[in-house]
Design a protein around this nucleic acid. Sequence first.
RNA 1: GCCGGGGUAGCCGAGCUGGCACAGGCGGCGCACUCAAAAUGCGUUGGGGCAACCCCCCGUGCGGGUUCGAAUCCCGCCCCCGGCACCA
Length: 828
Amino acid sequence: MDLEERYDFARTEPQWQRRWEAERLYEVEEDRDRPKFYLLEMFPYPSGALHMGHVRNYIIGDVLARYRRMTGHNVLHPMGYDAFGLPAENAAILRGVHPADWTYDIIRTIRRQLKMLGISYDWRREVASCHPGYYRWTQWMFLLLHRRGLAYRKLAPVNWCPQCSTVLANEQVEDGCCWRCHSVVGKRELEQWFFRITAYADRLLEDLDLLEGWPERVRTMQRNWIGRSEGVEIRFPVVGLDAALTVFTTRQDTVFGVTFMALAPEHPLLPRLLEGNGRAAEIREYIEKARKMTEIDRASTAREKTGVFTGHYCTNPLSGEKIPIWVADYVLMEYGSGAVMGVPAHDQRDFEFVRTHRLPLRVVVQPQDGPELDPATMVEASPAYGRMVNSGQFDGLCGEDALRRVADYIEEHGLGRRAVHYRLRDWLISRQRYWGAPIPVIYCSGCGVVPVPENALPVLLPPEVDFQPKGMSPLAACPEFVAAYCPSCGGQARRETDTMDTFVCSSWYFLRYLSPRYEGGPFRTEAAAYWFPVDQYVGGIEHAVLHLLYARFFTKVLYDEGMVPHPEPFRRLLTQGMVLKDGSAMSKSRGNVVSPDDMVRRYGADATRLTTLFAAPPEKDFEWTDQGIEGAARFVARVWRLVRAWKTIPGGPPRPPAEAERDLRRALHASLRRITCDLEERQQMNTALAAAMEMVNAAYAYRERVQPQDHDPAVVAEFLDILVRVIAPFLPHLAEELWRTELGRTGSVHCQPWPAWDRGALEADEVTLVVQVNGRVRDRLTLPADVTDGESIRLRALELDRVKQAVGGRRVARVVVVPGRLVNVVVE
RNA sequence: GCCGGGGUAGCCGAGCUGGCACAGGCGGCGCACUCAAAAUGCGUUGGGGCAACCCCCCGUGCGGGUUCGAAUCCCGCCCCCGGCACCA
């Protein structure tokens, strides 16, 4: 072999990419005779060229897709673009180009990058959510939800991002800041469209148990987000007023310990309590102050609990006691009923409140263990469940029983009812921006809110619009768009001018891929019957409660509508970690972006793929290093040289395998088994690749050990055949080059069946047992593999010099023999 | 505070359901090839003790426990990452 010869990835890789496209290798149709496998990566938001962090996602997905193809599956592996959204609009404002031009430009770049990496997509199925052929069906989804009573309009205080100049859903506010631009989010009172995701709260929660293929972390995050609490709502009549305050509590066993009532400053009953109230001025001042506070300040637990007494009282319906009503800004209007029964002895917040305002405290639950609670000496609340005291007829009841009996009593006496509350809020989907799918609704002075008829979709986004943000929807300033006829009465009417949240577009895209150009509906139900659900989804953890929750919600609605055969969209989920550079996530503003274009140019697509796959398990973050990719490129070349050197071994008569051949075959099949397990069950590409490297190392060791003229042709041929197949998912270009060009095989390696390991090759003639004395390794014992008799192994172990030495004449108490593994001699 | 996930060489990481701790890579060192270098191939690489091989001791965040045997199981801590959090 000429050592100067090098693997020319720059020539080879594009050549095979063109060939695969010409051979339509990755294009699939429904095929009832083959098991399907739907493999999907989260589609990118086209806000710029992809960096290494983005492409890791597609590389991981591609390995799994290629592996499934080789295991005989009919693999659907599509790609598209989450192309409606703010970055495009902001870039357009900044650069004076139209968002559509900007978006399609970036899409071209991303498509080129994905092709350059050799990702095996069925490109015919590409979708872009900003295309009318797509958003027509996003609008259709809106109408479906509307028809099912799941889309409604209401006036509510909503999150407003001043930077993005639009409202945001709760899920899109992180620590009081906009998820995208990190500006502090304020509140505005606006009439907006919501999706009633809370109607599905229980199912979204319960079905998490079905998602065994999801990381526990994501399931926990969704559980936290949904935040289900079981309790009771209790009505406290207001003294001297024909009204009652309803409170929600999960601790009805503490109801005899209520010493005050606290209302949120926004509570609707407050205006009535202020009528003719001598303290009205003071109270109003407090309410105003609370209103002006930012969400973050108000939510701070570090703040002292402030409040003012309203001068009014209500009656505890169980004890008959008179309870003072306060206003306190630690009570949130958005949760429960905006009123809290204050039980200072058993709730830390209420405890802090009474300490500042000198209100009384009463112990009504004694913990099962620990000292008796004494109100005089308590320094914090005691939230533990226990035995009810000072609670009249309920005294002595404990724990769950107490909760149940009090709830029963409340219901039987009409004082309230059992209730379940959620942290989850309805999904606010209106956006006061231009670059999104218009909400398909018309407002008629006579008929009210009228949905656009399905056959009038899409409601097209007009191209010529001034989209400079002015705190209102750009479409409202476009008279041609606003003017409409009422679909119901035909009279002059007005169009809705808000667009839909980007997350609406991405809540159903995995269904559009199934029949991407279908005109008769969002997707062909027969296609869904075959392909749905996604078998393996790959994407970032950042969507744990955003996209992944919304997509589950949409799927359940479509399931109820009978359009999809399964209530969950993603059977298995892999959340890949980030690629870090200099210790942090890549971003343009940080200037630490590693470009896949550079890496592919310098080292090739396969080496780039290998680097991201081998550096760490897929779900973990890893630091990008130049040494890493150099090592990857070395391995690519090492494989190439091995195959080049070995393909010329002439055939010869079969011969009995010698020890060197048996060792090589054992290493080959042991690695094959490991790679198969790692891909099949654990999805650990890094360890699969480690096994592939061991495989190659074993071949080099064989070449050191055996003279070239003595290389066993049959063993070498088997080795190359298996090696090239197993590297195919990881290094698709190299594998194809070796398969077709070097080994001269016909057809693509990517259409070959995945090899099965040979159990027989794994069996060794001899096994080496570890011999321990008191758990420490002292020697080794090599025996023919067929010696499994414990007694003879025991005797031979005790005969070993080093064992005798370690035993040192002490009495042998017992000998543990694990055949095939070890012997442990236990001495006193 | 609650919930989830982690902590193994100089670095990235293997180690499954208790059985030789550290596979594979990176980095380091050495050898071969070369006039030389690069590239490549081979060897070596946890710490300590010993002149030295053998060998011995220590070593998976910390402290206990279970076990013939623990990175792995149990109990109690510490630290890191992520989520939720004035949610009644």
